[in-house]
Design a protein around this nucleic acid. Sequence first.
RNA 1: GCCAGUGUAGCUCAGUUGGCCAGAGCAGCUGAUUUGUAAUCAGCUGGUCGGGGGUUCGAAUCCCUCCACUGGCUCCA
Length: 648
Amino acid sequence: MNITFPDGAVRQYEQGSTALDIAKKISEGLARKILAAEVNGEVWDLSRPIKNDSSIKFLTWDDEKAKSTFWHSSAHLMAEAVEDAFPGVKFWVGPPIEKGFYYDIDLGDNVISESDLEKLEKKMNELSKQNNSFVRKEISKADAVKYFEEKGDEYKLDLLQGLEDGSITFYTQGNFTDLCRGPHIPSTGLIKGIKLTSIAGAYWKGDEKNKMLTRIYGVTFPNQKELDEYLVFLEEAKKRDHRKLGKELELFTFSEKVGAGLPLWLPKGAMLRERLQNFLQKAQIESGYLPVITPHIGSKSLYVTSGHYEKYGKDSFQPIKTPVEGEEFFLKPMNCPHHCEIYKASPRSYKDLPLRLAEFGTVYRYEQSGELHGLTRVRGFTQDDAHLFCMPNQVKDEFKKVIDLVLYVFNSLGFTDYTAQISLRDQNDKSKYIGSDTNWEIAEKSIIEASEEKGLKTVIEFGEAAFYGPKLDFMVRDAIGRKWQLGTIQVDYNLPERFDLTYIGEDNAKHRPVMIHRAPFGSMERFIAVLTEHCAGKFPMWLVPVQVKILPISDKFLSYAQNVLSKLKNNDIRAEIDDRSEKIGKKIRDTELSKVPLMLIIGEKEVNDKKVSVRRQGKGDEGVKDVQEVIAMIQDEVKHKKIAETTA
RNA sequence: GCCAGUGUAGCUCAGUUGGCCAGAGCAGCUGAUUUGUAAUCAGCUGGUCGGGGGUUCGAAUCCCUCCACUGGCUCCA
């Protein structure tokens, strides 16, 4: 039979050769390195015989598809260890995920806790040493059903129900056999760096009405070194955790008494947030946005009109009532209904469009208690919200302008790696969306074209659009490679309809405007959390709470230090003096830990020369400079929004 | 909301199987020291051991319940 390789080369092999046979004929080294093969575009076990002319591509650890296969096999290995430790348990599914794998298991009456993970890891290592092959076996549906009936595993039986006879396969390694479509790596011995990371409950089939299964998460690598590197990465992520840094840098706090998910911004955090807000506000005003301010509550009828009452009323904070009339008000869960009323406050002409209403609006949403997390998931937060009311043919241009704004924001803050996810309608079922077909087509086309013209890296997802319109979300990758969803731009056909928004067109007739929601940051809280983790708490000069710490070597130089301080302050530089009677080493250490970017050290020499000794956080001594020079340097960094060099 | 876990001083953490007035380091305060590029020394203050209830002669330790937090699940206008 003919085998075609990725470079186009075609070679002859005996019919029934396996991918491994073929690899071995090329080189033993290759055969050792590969984990799976892509045969005619489908990932196959290396040991599966190839019967016809095919194209083949060998997959190594560097391929995402090989990683998935590796982790899928690792899930089976873990299942074997679990079955060994808890005989009689039942398995649901064990897929690979972005970084590792999990398996959902019904442990029966057994309870497992984090301390058991180490034992399971140990068992997995043992099973890996046995180097058992993953053996694929095609099996009839009747036999498969019989096997799991005997085992009493209703979960696998449920899976089997949805499968066609003739397409069913089992995989066995060692003492563990599982219903599985595969593919798998050749044997368990390849799995060397093993770490079970956490335990969680997960509803069967993700439905909270179903029984909760135990989910065990893990990650594995082909060698110990890569596992060690991954563990270092986890440590680094822990160091950057915004909850930890937020406390250390005195940015924000929480109080049980105030309530869960309700952040309290401390002076340093509040000022940082304000600088960020002013930065965006300024850019928005330059881009033609008009600031508006709306109250924190709105009457029930507002949300009945918007449709949110019907959809989310029960899941929201319950209404507050006026004491006499009993009129109901809701805490506002979003700003758009208020903004729609502003739109309606006067008759609009096509000449007024696009109308861009912007507000840093604080909203309140009842998030389930288990869902709260630091600043990234809270019950009260401030959106950098704006609503653009425009004509359908203006959508594309507005998108382009918003993309410009978002990229300006990202670039100013050192986020250089981002992609745009475009969410469109489900092509097969257009009935679940509101708005006319023509408008959807215009909008979807506008978004795609706008992204293209702006040169965005994009991913298109069908069926991910909201019922009220398509959207574009920005995903950024932070300094240590993690993905976050930040800014969003969404088209909305629903609210203009519900609020009966209109404008008078050139033809002197009423028309319906399109509404676009957009938020470059997403929310101030979430954005600051991501920014903090991105820069590891070392904020750029223009944002950092304290820019300069003046460190006199002894009390004798305090008056000169005061003098320097007032010069800095006169130039709007945020500076403080460490006037404790500590040794200079201690003052430097404390300042380094507090991540203040610049230290000015003042001793006898500096006083005599009328200069300051400059030390940069994380870098060290930068020599003696004139105070004016330092001021100019800081002003330059602020003006150009220079990014601090993040040292790990 | 659900599963698993955690909750001891402002912070980080010790507190054997329930048993002497609950400990340490850092921070804070007071004093001494007047210091040259990542921790000067001494003393002192500070905790109804997350809240409430129970078991017990006796509870930080065991049980119940509520709250908060952590990791997930579900949800996300």
